[in-house]
């Protein structure tokens, strides 16, 4: 099966590695490492510690979040052809992070309160022992101001983790959001 990186407009540089075999047992060291990585990452995203987060990404990162569309059963596609919310490489992610670090990213001043709830973590081996595929579900709750209603984004993710001398890093992420029409005023967040 082709990856969403293959299908996306800007994913040509992304690793094409795929999962091999069934899920790794929950007591497998590789699963434990991957799970710990995801929980630590979620904490960084909640804390908006974006410089630290950026350091967890490989230079060939592809970070893609297709636009989901409602199509008839059997249409053969459920993402908007040629369009995504995020279709990012290291440069574009680094600009997004740099912007949050200025004093003038008004959308996050005052900052949102964020909570990335993480579940359904499944780890798979790949052909390369230094790479793992990790599926997870994430539910982001975001609240701004005092009386505004909070907003939610629910998504499934497929990550490609790479073992590096500095530890595991994210080399590819596909975010399959469960909304066709987003109910959040902007995506000044990461999933």
């Amino acid at each position: 099966m082709e990856t969403h990186s293959t299908r996306s407009v800007l994913g040509a540089h992304a690793s094409r590695l795929q999962r091999v075999g069934a899920t790794l047992p929950f007591d497998d060291e590789r699963h434990l490492a991957a799970h710990r990585w995801l929980v630590d990452e979620a904490w960084l995203l909640d804390a908006q510690a974006y410089s630290d987060w950026l350091a967890l990404l490989t230079e060939d990162i592809h970070y893609v979040m297709p636009v989901r569309v409602t199509t008839a059963l059997g249409a053969g596609f459920d993402t908007s052809p040629g369009m995504a919310h995020f279709d990012e490489d290291w440069y574009s992610l680094s600009r997004r992070v740099a912007r949050f670090l200025t004093e003038h990213a008004w959308t996050e001043d005052p900052p949102s309160r964020l909570r990335h709830h993480l579940s359904n973590v499944r780890t798979f081996a790949t052909e390369d022992p230094d790479h793992l595929i990790v599926d997870s579900a994430t539910l982001l709750f975001r609240n701004r101001g005092d009386v505004h209603e909070g907003s939610l984004v629910s998504a499934g993710r497929e990550d490609l983790l790479r073992r590096t001398p500095e530890g595991w890093k994210l080399a590819r992420r596909t975010i399959m959001v469960d909304d066709s029409v987003m109910r959040m005023q902007n995506l000044a967040i990461f999933l």
Partner: peptide, 25 residues
């Protein structure tokens, strides 16, 4: 076309860096 699309995603739309601050206002 590909790079123009990249420019769009970075600036406008649901994740655009211009748009983020506009909508907050």
């Amino acid at each position: 076309k590909a790079l123009s699309y990249k420019a769009y995603l970075m600036c406008f739309g649901s994740t655009g860096m211009f748009e983020q601050d506009d909508v907050e206002n």
